[in-house]
């Protein structure tokens, strides 16, 4: 039986992990490569590297880091941030990424998902959607959650899957950072319309939030989080053990 995936997300800026990292036993907590190795050894099922660099120098540094990570970490790597063209796909895939996550790039250029899926296969194309309720409707936001596109989110996600997105990250802006659990209502609405893996993001504050997620919504395939892992509030090892005890299939 396929296991539920636990995915730490690393935001990388100018070659370093941003958002505080608070670990014992790691010499360089801001080194993305060291952190990736650490998570891999703790049982992370996949890693997401999010490039939040704006400059060209930072971007070159990011690809160096990605290459170095892919050389030493042997679990699936997903890369997002600044993916606007199929050339961007080629750039990160050449460094050892397995999947590429698109967000604002797909909003600006609605043909991007389809072209990338045709070139690299659907399994390679992850749509990351930042979604927020506005007047009771789910809306897609762009530019890191700052800009309301006005698009209805569930229909947008359904269309992207139709065009070839092979996996969906649903990031709820409403629950992000609140640490009171994932946005089950939003995730359920997405699960109802797509038949590709759905990754829940935004809202996890403790181990129980992951257990509640997989119990309530068996169709959700993975849970993603950043700071609670980075700050050691949730240990991936313990989380996996508790999942297994709760009857949720987990890779231990």
């Amino acid at each position: 039986m396929i296991t539920k995936r636990i995915i730490p997300c690393l935001d990388v800026k100018n070659g370093r992990v941003v958002k505080g990292v608070n670990f014992a036993g790691l010499n360089d907590v801001a080194s993305p490569v060291e952190l990736a190795k650490f998570y891999s050894s703790c049982g992370a099922d996949e890693l997401v590297f999010y490039d939040i660099t704006a400059s060209a120098e930072g971007r070159a540094l990011f690809t160096d880091i990605l290459t170095e990570t892919a050389r030493s970490v042997f679990i699936p790597l997903t890369v997002g941030g600044g993916i606007n063209t199929t050339d961007d796909f080629a750039r990160v895939l050449a460094c050892g990424a397995d999947k590429v996550s698109v967000n604002s790039g797909a909003i600006r250029d609605p043909g991007l998902v389809e072209r990338a899926a045709r070139l690299y296969g659907s399994q390679c194309v992850v749509l990351s959607a930042d979604v927020k309720r506005v007047d009771g409707m789910f809306r897609v936001f762009a530019k890191g959650g700052r800009e309301n596109t006005g698009m209805e989110a569930i229909e947008w996600i359904r269309r992207c899957v139709e065009n070839g997105a092979g996996e969906i990250v649903v990031n709820s802006i409403d629950t992000d950072g609140v640490k009171r659990g994932f946005d089950l209502e939003m995730l359920e609405a997405v699960c109802e319309v797509v038949s590709v893996p759905v990754i829940a993001s935004g809202g996890a504050g403790c181990t129980k939030d992951f257990i509640d997620l997989f119990k309530a919504l068996p169709k959700v395939d993975a849970g993603l989080a950043a700071s609670i892992f980075h700050f050691g509030e949730v240990s991936i090892k313990e989380l996996k053990q508790e999942m297994a005890q709760a009857g949720i299939p987990a890779r231990i």
Binding site: M1, I2, T3, D45, S122, Q123, G166, P197, R251
Partner: peptide, 28 residues
């Protein structure tokens, strides 16, 4: 069930093989 089959899944051994000499049945 979703297609593709994507993710970590435990192995069920069917025959003796040197290929699995260093892993256990049930490893994902």
């Amino acid at each position: 069930l979703k297609i593709p089959h994507i993710g970590w899944n435990p192995l069920i051994f069917k025959k003796e093989t040197p290929l699995f000499g260093r892993i256990q049945e049930g490893d994902c």
